[in-house]
Computed example of a mutant assay.
Amino acid sequence: APDGRVAAAYDEAGRICDEDVIQNEAIGRQGLELIEQVASLRPGPVNILTHCNAGWIATVDWGTALAPIYMAHDRGIDVHVWVDETRPRNQGASLTAWELGRHGVKHTVIADNAGGHLMQHGMVDMVIVGTDRVTRTGDVANKIGTYLKALAARDNGVPFWVALPSTTIDWTISDGVREIPIEERQGREVTHIQGRNEAGVPTTVQLVPDGSGAANPAFDVTPARLVTGLITERGRCPATADGLCDLFPEYV
């Protein structure tokens, strides 16, 4: 009966949600240890930079990259988050900042290009980002701009961690740069920006001159060599085929 199928669909959706909560809570515990290690070394806030939105808006209850941050905050650790605006869709400035504010986590929104400067001046203790797809060798696809943050982190000796559930790993591919297709979105997302005017009314503003074109790749790939490690529900590991297989031997 149709009603029976609907009920079964709701039950399955509930099961998937519950699994997501369990996975992300486990990711949070694994990442929390990294934050605790930094907090134990000196007084003052642990400064974490993140990119795009990988919190409970994107998943359920905890998020991935933000789960360790929420847990650290709830444990009473002094934590502060540098929130990349994440142009052109501004998921950081709108979603991540909103989430952190609702949870009471100290945060500062920054222009996407400011991260390297902050790292040079010792103002970032670690980077934690999420990911949309990870190869079996540890390459990481995430929101456009992630690769540049990884380069800046490597140049400045800042740990660059990627938080992910195992369902994000694509065991069929090994070269993310060549094998992961990158979505090219509408140029209007670059040429225009959405926000609120002084009266609080949502509005759209054109940023570029008439007739200027725009390219809009939505993601980039960070090679595994730039990733300090992966934070999964089963533990942390190097961003390598061996590291992933040690945690998930059933895929060997």
Rank of each mutant, 00 (worst) to 15 (best):
A114V: 10
L41Y: 08
V129M: 00
D246L: 10
H103E: 14
E233D: 04
I22D: 03
D155I: 14
Q30A: 15
H192C: 07
E233M: 13
T131M: 00
G138V: 06
A163Q: 01
G122W: 06
G195F: 08
G130I: 07
F219C: 04
A241I: 12
I231K: 01
R154S: 14
L41D: 05
V83C: 09
D20M: 11
E198C: 04
R42L: 05
R87C: 06
V109R: 11
H51D: 02
R133V: 15
I169G: 05
P68I: 07
W161M: 00
G145Q: 09
V162M: 02
P223L: 01
P2R: 15
E33H: 09
N47A: 04
A239S: 01
H51T: 01
D139W: 06
N24I: 03
R188G: 15
P68D: 07
G130Y: 05
D61L: 12
R178G: 14
P223F: 03
G55A: 08
P217Y: 12
I182L: 04
V124D: 01
N113G: 14
A93D: 03
A199E: 13
A54K: 09
V162S: 00
E19L: 15
A93S: 09
V109L: 08
H51Y: 02
A72P: 09
P88T: 06
L49C: 05
V124F: 01
Q194T: 15
V205D: 15
G31W: 02
K106V: 07
W98C: 10
A199K: 14
V60E: 08
P45H: 07
T64I: 15
P43G: 07
T232F: 07
P202T: 13
D246I: 13
G101N: 02
V46N: 10
A215E: 13
R29N: 14
H73R: 06
L118S: 05
V127A: 00
R133M: 07
A97F: 05
F219N: 03
T232L: 11
A150E: 04
R133Q: 04
I182N: 06
R133L: 02
G63H: 02
P165Y: 10
N90A: 07
V205P: 02
E33C: 13
I173T: 02
W56L: 05
N113A: 15
C237M: 09
R236D: 08
L49P: 06
T222S: 12
P88S: 04
S212T: 15
Q91E: 11
R234V: 15
I77K: 12
I35K: 02
S94A: 05
T64W: 01
A9T: 13
G104Y: 01
L100D: 10
A150G: 08
G122S: 08
W161R: 03
P238C: 04
K149P: 04
G235S: 11
A239V: 01
C52E: 08
V140N: 04
E19D: 12
I57W: 11
Q120L: 00
A163I: 00
P43T: 10
T135G: 01
Q91I: 01
G104L: 02
L148R: 09
R154W: 13
P217V: 12
T204E: 14
G235C: 11
D246E: 13
R178C: 03
S40M: 10
R5G: 14
K106F: 03
L41E: 10
V79S: 06
Q23R: 08
E85V: 06
F219L: 14
I173H: 07
A1N: 12
R87H: 09
M71H: 00
G213H: 09
G213W: 01
L226Y: 08
L118A: 14
T222Q: 14
D210C: 03
